[in-house]
């Protein structure tokens, strides 16, 4: 065991490799912009609760991808939390299947005000490829009041970040009114 520990200590640290990642200038600029906006509107702490309402999992993976070493969204003041009680916004994915409708409404009620509903992905806008099928409700707007839509099937991590930037602008304008 000691041999293994020594070997691990002497070998190159894996973190060095990951720290070499470089995003494109454009991408980094976008994420820095997000940081500024989140700082102004939410004081560097915007917490999102993600709700899967019958999604194919691609949107979820893209949200997870936001926390990987490439984007590392936490350093820009945005994070995903495990309970709606901790959240500023809920991010809904999927065409809202009837099985998940009640769970979604309950999550909405459990989120403290002022709450924001973000619809993420084409399915949430109008049901996407599942539109008019019997087990879906054709979009979040039929269940909850929606503040913001992010389109894409699935939206890439940068699309989501870009969407959040616009969302911050909208919230700021509302505040100023």
């Amino acid at each position: 065991m000691i041999k293994h520990i020594l070997k691990n200590m002497l070998s190159k640290k894996p973190c060095e490799k990951i720290s070499k990642i470089k995003l494109d200038e454009k991408e980094l600029e976008l994420l820095n912009k997000l940081k500024d906006k989140v700082l102004k509107v939410y004081g560097r702490s915007f917490r999102i609760r993600q709700v899967d309402a019958g999604s194919c999992n691609a949107c979820e993976w893209e949200c997870t991808a936001l926390t990987n070493p490439f984007y590392d969204i936490q350093r820009f003041g945005v994070d995903f939390v495990a309970s709606p009680r901790h959240a500023d916004a809920i991010l809904v994915t999927g065409p809202i299947s009837r099985q998940m409708q009640l769970a979604l409404i309950k999550t909405y009620k459990a989120t403290p005000s002022p709450k924001i509903v973000i619809a993420c992905g084409d399915c949430t806008i109008d049901g996407g490829i599942f539109k008019d099928s019997y087990p879906v409700t054709n979009g979040v707007h039929n269940v909850l009041p929606v503040d913001f839509y992010i389109k894409g099937c699935p939206p890439s991590p940068l699309d989501i970040a870009e969407g959040l930037i616009t969302l911050m602008d909208i919230i700021r304008d509302k505040k100023n009114k």
Partner: peptide, 12 residues
């Protein structure tokens, strides 16, 4: 966490 992030890095 190191392994988790490393896997996420190669996947990305």
């Amino acid at each position: 966490q190191v392994g988790n992030q490393w896997g996420a890095y190669i996947k990305e």
